[in-house]
Design a protein around this nucleic acid. Structure first.
Lengths: 194, 194
DNA sequence: GATTTACTTGAGTGATTGCTCAAATATATA
DNA sequence: TATATATTTGAGCAATCACTCAAGTAAATC
C-alpha cells in the first residue's frame, strides 16, 4: 500500500485557505503555500494537482467551515430577526479577530483574471446563489409564520442582503472602522424591515 | 529643452487604467501596460516612476473621470430620487457595455496584499470617504428641502448606499445577471425610502 | 525478507516578473 | 550651427513564478 502521508489533508487545506484569504490567489506563491502547509513540492503536486485545483478545494472548505457555520445562526435561533443579528455579530467578531483575515475569502482572493476561469467562476456563482437561496427560504418562513411583515419580499430582500454583505466584506478589507460598519448594519436591518 | 514626449499623458493614463481595471493590479504586467499604452520601457519609468506609482495615478484618474461623472447625476437632476436612479442607470449601462470592464476599478484591482501598502490604502479610504460624504450632503439637502422623509438618517443612509454599491460592483464582476441586479436595486431604493 | 507501491525530497526547468542603464535620437536655446 | 537637455530605444538584470522529475524512503502485501 506504499508509504503513508505525513500530513493531515484537512489541516493542510485549512492552512492553505488562510494564505489565499490573507494574500489573495495571485499574490499567494507556491513557496507561501508550502511554507504554511509545511509540506514539500512533490507532496503538494502529488496530493493537490496544482495551485488552481488546491484553490478550488479551499473554496469548498470555506463554504463548509465558514459560510455553513454562519448560516447556522439563522437556523438555530428562534426568530429571523435574532438570527440575522447573530450572524452579523459573528461577522463583526471576525473583523476584530486578528487571527482571521478581514473580509471574505470569495471577496478577497478572487482577481478579475481568475474569474475568467470558467471552473472558478461557476463555483463562486453557485456558492453565492446557494447563500441567497438560503436567505430566501429563511425569509419566506419568517414571513409566512407572521414574524416578519407581509410587505417584505423574500426574494428581493435575500438578494439585497447578499449584495450588502459583499459590500461589507469589501469595506472591511479596506480597514473601515468595524464599529462604524456595525452601526450602519444595525440601521440597515431596521430600515429594510428585519 | 530636449526631445518632446511622443505620447499624450492623459491618454496613456486612461489606457493604463483600463488594463488595471480589467486584469487587476497583480495580474497586470509591465508588458501588458507597455503594449496597451504603446510606449517603451524607458519612457514608462521616465514618466511614471514605477508600476505602483502609475497605479496610484490611474486611481486618481478614475476618481476624476468615472466617479465624478457619476456624482453629477445627483447634482444635475432636479431631485435626489431622480438623481440616484439616474446614477444607478449609468452604472448598469456600464455593466452592459462590453468596452467598459465590469465592476469598479477600486473593487476589481485591489488585492489584499496591495492594500497593505499604506499609500494605496490611504488613497482608497479617502476616495470612499469622499464618495460617502457626497451622498451625505445630497441626502441632507433632500431631507431639509422636504423632498425626502424626515425619518431618513442622511449619515447612515449614505454609508449604506456606499456599502451596497460596493457589493453591487463585486457581484457584477461575478457576472451576475445585470437585469437581476437592476430589479433588486430598484427595490432596495424603495425600501430604504429613496 | 523481497517486492510493490505511495509519498517525500530537493535540485532544477523555462518563462516571466518589475526594473536598470547606456547609447541613440530629437528638440529648444545660445 | 553647436550645445544642453529630455525622451526613446532595446538589451539585459536578478528574482521569482508555477511546476517537473529522478532518486530516496517508508509502509503493506506476498
Amino acid at each position: 500500500m506504499g508509504r503513508l502521508k505525513e500530513f493531515e489533508l484537512q489541516e493542510a487545506l485549512g492552512k492553505a485557505m488562510n494564505v489565499f484569504w490573507k494574500k489573495g490567489y495571485d499574490k499567494t506563491s507556491l513557496k507561501d503555500l508550502l511554507t504554511e502547509m509545511d509540506i514539500l513540492n512533490g507532496s503538494f503536486y502529488n496530493t493537490f494537482g496544482n495551485k488552481k485545483s488546491l484553490f478550488l478545494k479551499t473554496l469548498e472548505f470555506y463554504g463548509e467551515e465558514i459560510t455553513a457555520k454562519r448560516a447556522n445562526h439563522l437556523t438555530t435561533n428562534e426568530s429571523f430577526k435574532v438570527g440575522i443579528r447573530s450572524l452579523f455579530e459573528d461577522v463583526f467578531k471576525c473583523f476584530s479577530d486578528k487571527k482571521t483575515p478581514r473580509g471574505c475569502l470569495l471577496v478577497n482572493s478572487l482577481s478579475s483574471e481568475l474569474l475568467k476561469d470558467q471552473e472558478v467562476l461557476n463555483f463562486v456563482q453557485t456558492e453565492i446563489a446557494n447563500f441567497e437561496e438560503f436567505f430566501f427560504i429563511q425569509l419566506e418562513q419568517a414571513v409566512d409564520s407572521g414574524e416578519l411583515d407581509k410587505s417584505i419580499n423574500p426574494k428581493l430582500t435575500a438578494s439585497i442582503l447578499v449584495t450588502y454583505i459583499q459590500g461589507l466584506m469589501k469595506l472591511s478589507s479596506l480597514e473601515i472602522s468595524s464599529s462604524k460598519l456595525e452601526k450602519q448594519t444595525s440601521h440597515f436591518l431596521e430600515v429594510i424591515g428585519l
